[in-house]
Measured scan of single mutants.
Amino acid sequence: GKELVLALYDYQEKSPREVTMKKGDILTLLNSTNKDWWKVEVNDRQGFVPAAYVKKL
């Protein structure tokens, strides 16, 4: 099944490779191999968020 993460904080994208999320959002985790930036999918968009801003559910 898909792995989900919870947004712990708001995050505003700073580049086209990133995505914006709001605290409390549930996101689909696509890739967590990089310890600093995790790739997630939110609202049919894929991009990176800081790993410290999310936690695995």
Score class of each variant (00 low, 15 high):
Asp25Tyr: 05
Asp44Ile: 06
Tyr53Met: 13
Lys22Arg: 12
Ser32Lys: 07
Trp37Ile: 03
Ser15Arg: 09
Lys2Ile: 13
Ile26Ala: 03
Lys14Met: 12
Ser15Leu: 09
Thr33Arg: 10
Glu18Gly: 13
Gly47Met: 06
Thr28Met: 12
Ala52Gln: 10
Tyr11Val: 02
Val42Asp: 10
Asn34Ala: 09
Val42Gly: 13
Met21Phe: 10
Tyr11Leu: 01
Ala7His: 01
Gly1Thr: 14
Thr28Tyr: 13
Pro16His: 12
Gly1Asp: 14
Ala7Trp: 02
Leu57Arg: 04
Leu27Asp: 00
Val40Asp: 00
Trp38Ser: 03
Thr20Glu: 03
Val40Met: 02
Val40Cys: 05
Thr33Glu: 15
Asn34Asp: 15
Trp37His: 04
Gly47Lys: 02
Lys55Tyr: 11
Pro50Lys: 04
Leu8Ala: 04
Leu57Ser: 04
Leu6Arg: 08
Leu57Pro: 04
Ala51Thr: 06
Leu27Thr: 01
Ala52Lys: 15
Gln46Cys: 09
Asn34Cys: 10
Phe48His: 05
Val49Cys: 03
Val5Phe: 07
Val49Asp: 01
Thr20Ala: 07
Leu4Met: 12
Gly24His: 05
Lys35Thr: 11
Asn34Lys: 07
Arg45Phe: 05
Trp37Arg: 03
Ala7Phe: 01
Phe48Trp: 15
Gly1Gln: 14
Asn34Met: 08
Met21Lys: 00
Lys55Arg: 13
Thr28Gln: 11
Asp25Trp: 12
Lys22Cys: 10
Leu57Met: 10
Tyr9Ile: 10
Asn43Pro: 12
Asp25Gly: 04
Ala51Asp: 01
Tyr11Gln: 00
Leu4Phe: 15
Leu6Ile: 15
Lys35Arg: 12
Leu30Ser: 03
Glu13Lys: 14
Lys35Pro: 14
Gln46Glu: 11
Lys22Pro: 00
Glu13His: 09
Leu6Tyr: 11
Pro50Tyr: 03
Asp36Tyr: 15
Leu27Cys: 09
Ser32Ala: 13
Ser15Gln: 08
Phe48Tyr: 15
Val54His: 01
Ala52Ile: 12
Val5Met: 05
Asn43Arg: 13
Gly24Asp: 06
Lys14Arg: 12
Thr20Ser: 15
Arg17Gln: 14
Thr20Arg: 06
Ile26Tyr: 06
Ala52Val: 11
Asp44Gly: 15
Ala7Asp: 00
Glu3Met: 12
Gln12Asn: 14
Val19Gln: 03
Lys23Asp: 02
Trp37Lys: 02
Val42Trp: 08
Val19Tyr: 04
Leu6Gln: 11
Gln12Lys: 13
Asp36Ile: 15
Val49Gly: 01
Asn31His: 07
Gly1Met: 13
Val49Leu: 02
Asp25Cys: 06
Asn31Leu: 09
Leu57Val: 12
Tyr53Lys: 07
Lys39Tyr: 15
Asn34Gly: 10
Ala7Tyr: 01
Arg45Asn: 05
Lys56Cys: 08
Leu6Gly: 02
Val5Asp: 00
Asp36Asn: 14
Glu41Thr: 08
Thr28Asn: 09
Leu27Ser: 02
Ala7Glu: 00
Thr20Phe: 04
Ser15Ala: 10
Leu27His: 04
Thr20Tyr: 04
Trp37Gln: 03
Asp25Ile: 04
Met21Val: 10
Gly1Asn: 14
Ala7Thr: 04
Asp25Phe: 05
Lys39Ile: 14
Val54Tyr: 01
Ser32Thr: 09
Trp37Val: 03
Val54Gly: 02
Lys56Arg: 12
Ser15Phe: 05
Asn31Ser: 13
Arg17Gly: 15
Tyr53Thr: 07
Asn43Phe: 12
Trp38Cys: 04
Val5Gln: 01
Leu8Arg: 05
Leu8Gly: 02
Gly1Arg: 13
Asn34Leu: 09
Leu27Val: 07
Leu6Lys: 08
Asp10Ala: 07
Lys23His: 05
Ile26Pro: 01
Val5Leu: 14
Arg17Cys: 13
Lys55Thr: 14
Thr28Cys: 08
Thr28Phe: 11
Thr28Ser: 09
Leu6Cys: 09
Gln46Thr: 13
Leu27Gly: 11
Pro16Lys: 11
Val19Asp: 01
Lys55Val: 15
Leu29Val: 07
Thr33Pro: 04
Tyr53Arg: 05
Leu8Asp: 02
Asn43Tyr: 12
Leu57Gly: 04
Arg17Ser: 14
Trp38Lys: 01
Ile26Arg: 05
Ala52Arg: 15
Gly24Tyr: 05
Val54Gln: 00
Gln12Arg: 12
Glu13Asp: 05
Leu29Asp: 00
Thr33Asn: 13
Thr33Leu: 11
Lys56Val: 11
Thr33Cys: 12
Val40Ser: 00
Tyr53Glu: 02
Tyr11Ile: 01
Lys35Asp: 10
Tyr53Asp: 03
Gly47Asn: 01
Asp36Trp: 15
Val49His: 00
Lys22Tyr: 12
Leu4Ala: 07
Gly47Ile: 05
Thr28Ala: 10
Asn31Cys: 10
Asn43Trp: 10
Leu8Trp: 04
Leu29Asn: 01
Gln12Asp: 14
Lys2Trp: 11
Leu4Ile: 09
Ala52Thr: 12
Gly24Gln: 02
Lys56Trp: 08
Pro50Arg: 04
Asn43Gly: 15
Glu13Ala: 15
Val19Trp: 05
Leu6Glu: 12
Val19Ala: 05
Ile26Ser: 03
Glu3Val: 13
Leu29Gly: 00
Lys23Val: 07
Trp38Pro: 01
Ser32Gln: 09
Asp36Phe: 14
Gly24Pro: 00
Lys23Thr: 07
Ile26Phe: 06
Leu8Gln: 05
Leu6Trp: 07
Pro16Ile: 10
Gly1Lys: 14
Leu6His: 05
Tyr11Asn: 00
Leu57Trp: 09
Leu6Ala: 07
Phe48Asp: 04
Gly24Leu: 03
Lys14Cys: 10
Ser32Cys: 11
Val54Pro: 01
Gln12Thr: 15
Leu4Cys: 09
Gln12Leu: 13
Leu8Ser: 03
Ala52Leu: 10
Tyr9Trp: 11
Ser15Thr: 13
Leu30Thr: 06
Lys39Glu: 15
Ala7Asn: 00
Tyr53Ile: 06
Asn31Thr: 08
Thr20Gln: 05
Ala52Asp: 09
Thr28His: 10
Asn34Trp: 07
Lys2Ser: 11
Lys35Ser: 11
Asn34Gln: 10
Lys2Pro: 14
Gln12His: 15
Asp44Leu: 09
